[in-house]
Design a binder for these strands. Structure first.
Lengths: 207, 207
DNA sequence: TGGAACCTAAGTCAAGTGACTGATCAACAG
DNA sequence: CTGTTGATCAGTCACTTGACTTAGGTTCCA
C-alpha cells in the first residue's frame, strides 16, 4: 500500500499540470464552439495530448469537466468575496459590489482573451449542466453569505427582481468578454463593466 | 415544367404539416436537452417519422432548423408589435411594453408547457447559432422600429444599459417558462411576468 | 538497484450521426 | 387511364464519439 502522506511529487505535479492544461483548453473550446459541440477527443487533441482519452483519464465525463472548470474559478473568486464581506458597510451598493466585483476582477486578472465568462454563460443555460454548475458555484459559503447580506437591504417590492441580477451579471460579462476578444472593447475595461453592473443592479433593487 | 400557380394542394399541405410537426418537436427537445445534445435523427424519431432523414429533407441543417423555429414565432410577435407601435404614446413604459409584451403574450398563447423561451435562450447563447438567430429575429422591421422608438426616450446616461435588457427579457422568460413547466408557477401568470419586466426595465433605463 | 505506482501513447470497439440512395405510394395533369 | 411529381420509408456508408484495453516510459521509495 502506498503511504498517502508521502506522495510522488514530480509525477503528481505533471498530472496536475496536464489536468490544468486540459481544463484551460476545454474552457476555450467551449466558449468558442459551445459545450456540447466539443468532444473530449477534440479537447485532448487541442491540448496536444497523444491519447484520445486524456480527458477521461484525468477528469472524467463532460459533467465532471464542467464542474472542475467552475470550481477552478470559484476558488479565487470566493477568497476575494469573503475578504470583501468582512466588515462590509450597510450601503446597498457596497453589498451589491460583493456579488459583482469578485467576478469582474477575476476576469480582469485572467487577461485577454479570456473564456470563462462565455463558458459559464453557456453552462448556466444548459438544461442538464446548470444543476452541476449551480451546485459547484452558487452554493459556495461566501456566495450564499453575499446573497444573504444583500437581501437584508432589498425592499420587499424588489425581491421578485433578485432572480434577474444573476442573468444580468453573467451575460453582461459574457458580452464584454466577447467584445474584448474581438477587439471591440478597450483592454482594462473590466472595472468599468463592474461599475456599470453595480449601478444598474442598484437602480433595479431600490424601487 | 410544373405550373407554379397551381401547386398540388393536398401534397403540399401534408408536407407543411410534417414540417411544422418537426419544428415543434425540435423546439421541445432543444429546450429539454440542449440544442447540440439533440440529433436530427432523434427529432425525426420523436416526431414519429419513419425516415431518419426527415429533418434533412423538410428543413435542412441544424442552423436552418433553428432559423425556421425563430422565424415561426417571430411572425405573430411582429404582427402584434407593429400594431402596438402604431400610435404608441410617448411614455417610456409604453415604449418598453412594445419590446416586452409581444413576447410574453405570445408565450401565454402557446399554453403550458411551452418551450420557445428556453429554446431561444439557448440559441442566443450559442456562439455559432446566435448569428443565425439574430438575423432572423432582432432585425425584423417591427423590432428595429421598437428599439428605435425606445431609444428616443432613453437618457444618454442609460444607453450603456440597453444591451442588458435583451438578456433580462429572454432569460427571465426562460426562467418563468421553466417554473410553469415544473408547476412552480401559477398558470396564467405571463402578464405578471410582463409587468415585472416592464417595471424593471423602466427603473433600469430612467436613471 | 529493483520494483511498484503512475502518466502517456496507441489502438480497438460498439453505438450513434449526417448525408446519401433507391423503393414505395398517393395525388394529379394530360 | 397513365406518366410525373413529390412525400415518406428503409437501408447504406464513411465518419466521429466515448469507453475500454494494452504497451511503453518515467518517477521515486525501499
Amino acid at each position: 500500500m502506498v503511504d498517502a502522506a508521502t506522495p510522488r511529487r514530480r509525477v503528481r505535479a505533471d498530472a496536475a499540470a496536464t489536468q490544468a492544461l486540459l481544463l484551460r483548453t476545454a474552457e476555450k473550446l467551449f466558449a468558442e464552439r459551445g459545450v456540447h459541440a466539443v468532444s473530449n477527443r477534440q479537447i485532448a487533441e487541442a491540448a496536444g495530448q497523444g491519447s484520445n482519452s486524456a480527458v477521461g483519464y484525468h477528469i472524467g465525463t463532460k459533467a465532471d469537466l464542467v464542474a472542475a472548470i467552475i470550481r477552478t474559478h470559484a476558488v479565487p473568486m470566493d477568497l476575494y468575496r469573503a475578504r470583501m464581506l468582512d466588515g462590509v458597510p450597510g450601503a446597498p451598493r457596497a453589498r451589491i459590489a460583493c456579488v459583482v466585483l469578485p467576478l469582474t476582477r477575476h476576469l480582469a486578472e485572467l487577461g485577454t482573451p479570456s473564456w470563462y465568462a462565455r463558458c459559464s454563460a453557456q453552462i448556466l443555460i444548459d438544461p442538464v449542466l446548470r444543476t452541476v454548475a449551480v451546485r459547484s458555484a452558487t452554493s459556495t459559503p461566501a456566495m450564499s453569505r453575499a446573497m444573504e447580506v444583500l437581501l437584508e437591504v432589498v425592499p420587499p417590492a424588489a425581491v421578485p427582481r433578485i432572480e434577474m441580477i444573476g442573468h444580468l451579471i453573467v451575460h453582461t460579462c459574457a458580452d464584454h468578454e466577447r467584445d474584448l476578444a474581438a477587439g471591440h472593447a478597450a483592454p482594462g475595461s473590466w472595472p468599468r463593466t463592474g461599475r456599470l453592473l453595480i449601478d444598474a443592479i442598484a437602480d433595479l433593487l431600490t424601487v
